[in-house]
């Protein structure tokens, strides 16, 4: 992970922490530190709708749009950071 995606991962983790708090999502990891390797589905137990809602927050934060098709390949914060970095370069 380079410094650019590391910085993006930090922002994504913070956004996800806020999302969990604001939406009262009960998750096994919600009170722990979310890291780049955190898996949103298996570890945080977010359902597909919640992942997609969180993605809308991410899109607005970074002023990007992410194609629906890309979402199926995103499992961890690090995966997502890669997508955000690629969208920035477009």
């Amino acid at each position: 992970m380079n410094s650019s995606t590391e910085s993006i991962s930090d922002q994504l983790a913070e956004l996800l922490t806020q999302y969990l708090k604001q939406n009262w999502v009960k998750s096994p990891l919600s009170n722990k530190l979310i890291t780049a390797s955190t898996n949103m589905v298996t570890e945080l137990q977010l359902d597909s709708f919640q992942v997609m809602e969180y993605m809308l927050e991410v899109e607005d934060h970074f002023d990007i749009t992410v194609d629906l098709e890309s979402l199926s390949n995103i499992h961890t914060i690090e995966d997502l950071a890669g997508v955000v970095a690629a969208a920035h370069q477009e």
Partner: peptide
Amino acid sequence: YDGCRMSGADVFRFKHNDVQSLEKRLKR
């Protein structure tokens, strides 16, 4: 959702009933 995905077009979502969210994406 299924129709959009099957079409092969690029599918971008906007926040439910949120006109500002739609406008941002239109600008992009």
